[in-house]
Write a protein that binds this DNA or RNA. Structure first.
Lengths: 368, 368
DNA sequence: GTGATCTGCTCTAACGTTTGAGCAGTGGCC
DNA sequence: GGCCACTGCTCAAACGTTAGAGCAGATCAC
């Protein structure tokens, strides 16, 4: 806008016809390389090379300045479609998560966002709760060239139909928290350690009857957390009670169900490790409704932390799993795959899962 | 995978060279219109017209079938960049929210996602917590033609720098929960009614000293909720006490602060309307920590509902604001703006804010 | 003075799509 | 037999970008 006063050197006509309709503000067409070239009095390729400062740009300092100024004056921005068409790159990464409203996935998204921005990419949102098989949507996004790669979190270990074919096609896809036979490219949290830390915490407090409210049997994370739970018990020389594990799922409602089932066991557990914070919140609510005092009658430790965990009553002792970092790692992986071809599986161990002791855990009552 | 057995009718060479490197699965290039045309033995334009079934496609039934079959065999998918370049449309809508980890915004995102999918659009995620002024990012997204339009939620009423210019440019932008002088195109919830319903609920229970934990003064939603709160009091003939409103913000921490300030007032309020569920959750936690029993000593009703509200202790009485529907409406608006040019401001009144009575509210103790 | 090299550009093709214009062949009408 | 309309296609331009190849003029070595 500044410097529009003096007539440009030898411009036939800047960008298109621009009588501003007074009725409704019309979107004026963006300036193209051609417009900038015309204003600067040079060829399109000269402009392209200068603005994308290619090493092959041999231009005099004077010309360069004229071009840069013209671009600024016209508010030139490189057209995305033109660039994508030519380069077969969009600088977009697709992100598919099963449940947008889950606090944990939003943390993951946040990490993914940050890493993408740092690498000059943007995120395209996919939805895994589509009516149609997600595989089709993912294949479309990649096949149409809308995204350069994808980060996919499949819900509870159910791979969408057509996933195998898709992965075999060699598309840059990073799986979150799950793997697929023959596919290299995934990131996961150290769930085993996470569950182990939570269990160990209860053991350290003196609990000996520790139950486990786990996710669905087919869930990859549930399988890993299960291992961690058992490891801790075995190592402490504690028995693994029959029926002390439920495998209903990760939602708040699932947590309620889990509590009710576990509290029917004989002997009653004195502590419960919950595999997911949302389930733990539901479990806590159910305990309160049933008159079970936490932590007096029952200690509850959960895998996962989120801001919601610190606002429950009592505030939940939780093992913070690094979802944010996993999001970053996933995008880092997929970008590296896109740009260098390298692909690998990765487990986030740094930062490590971290125990955050709040008020839902205490030593067991000795009189029970 | 099925039906790959028989050789194609008369293929010169399907899409490029495809000796599958055994070392690493290579991404084979997608088939183009040209490939399909070659396989079907027709011109590119014929294929284009048939596959996008344009009314101008005058082809024999036999040709049409050959083309469709060829496209299917080659797994043809229209290249996004080519299409976008030609049509100057990307079928992508940008979504910018200030805080990805907020349960309310994720609900909004979810609605936006659904509506976008229904209209054949996808969502590109922007981030408002960028170091650089968001205005620049938004201008880039639009200017580069990465998105056809944007849905923007600016945090707490602070419009990003350059916003005015951007809106004036006539870009298809829909603002969420805020307006901008001279800009038509926004959606908002009926915050006034929401706050009013919450306040009225406390009045109906018999409360007469009702405080209000509000958001920041510059926040558009806070302004509207404030009106609803006062309206309800005035209508009921209740006095508006000095110092009964805090305006610290919408986070859980803000809620803690608000509780402590409000409980210092003389006389003490017997009920608090909280303008945001996250703040209410924090406020509840602070009350518990300070030995204030809810609802015996203090009733708490909040504007906004989310799954977190039903898992607090006590479960929060909340007015459900229709974030999901607002998300849908925002995308609906921006798509209509893109496709027909129509633009307007809209308030979501259907479905209306809905009172959900849980256990954080009760009649005031008469002995106080 | 001649050839080689360098500087500072421009020309052109290509990416994959859409779409207006054009064209050969057929059939109908008068 | 001439004209028209219709069918069923193809041709070619255009969208905005990138990048290899080319080219005129200046400078330099010998």
């Amino acid at each position: 806008m500044a410097g529009d006063g003096q007539p440009a050197a030898a411009t036939p006509e800047p960008p298109g016809p621009k009588p501003p309709l007074p009725g409704r503000a019309r979107l004026r067409p963006m300036a193209t390389l051609g417009d900038v070239a015309a204003l600067a009095g040079v060829s399109i390729s000269a402009v392209s090379r200068v603005l994308s400062d290619a090493p092959s740009a041999r231009v005099s300092e004077a010309t360069r300045e004229r071009i840069v100024k013209a671009a600024r004056d016209l508010q030139y921005r490189p057209n995305f479609a033109g660039r994508a068409l030519k380069s077969a790159r969009t600088q977009v990464v697709g992100l598919v998560v099963p449940d947008l409203t889950n606090a944990l996935f939003t943390e993951l998204m946040h990490g993914a966002e940050d890493e993408a921005a740092a690498k000059g990419y943007t995120l395209l949102l996919g939805r895994a709760d589509d009516v149609r098989p997600e595989g089709e949507m993912i294949a479309r996004l990649i096949g149409e060239g809308r995204v350069d790669g994808m980060v996919i979190q499949v819900g509870d270990g159910v791979a969408p139909a057509g996933m195998g074919e898709l992965l075999a096609s060699g598309a840059p896809i990073v799986l979150i928290n799950s793997t697929y036979p023959g596919h290299a490219g995934s990131v996961a949290l150290d769930d085993r350690t996470g569950a182990r830390i939570a269990t160990q915490h209860l053991i350290d407090l003196g609990h000996e009857r520790i139950a486990f409210a786990n996710g669905l049997p087919r869930s990859f994370t549930a399988k890993r957390r299960r291992v961690g739970y058992k490891e801790a018990l075995v190592e402490a020389g504690l028995p693994i009670f029959q029926g002390y594990e439920t495998r209903v799922g990760y939602t708040a409602d699932n947590g309620r169900t889990a509590l009710r089932r576990l509290m029917e066991r004989e002997p009653r557990p004195t502590g419960i490790v919950v595999a997911n914070v949302n389930a733990a919140i539901g479990l806590l609510a159910a305990a309160r409704a049933d008159g079970i005092r936490v932590p007096e009658d029952l200690s509850v430790a959960t895998v996962h932390d989120s801001w919601t965990a610190e606002n429950t009553w009592p505030p939940l002792t939780a093992v913070k799993m690094q979802f944010y970092d996993m999001g970053r790692a996933a995008v880092r992986r997929v970008v590296r795959r896109i740009e260098t071809g390298e692909m690998a599986d990765e487990m986030i161990t740094d930062p490590a899962p971290e125990l955050i002791v709040r008020e839902s855990t205490a030593p067991p009552r000795r009189d029970v």
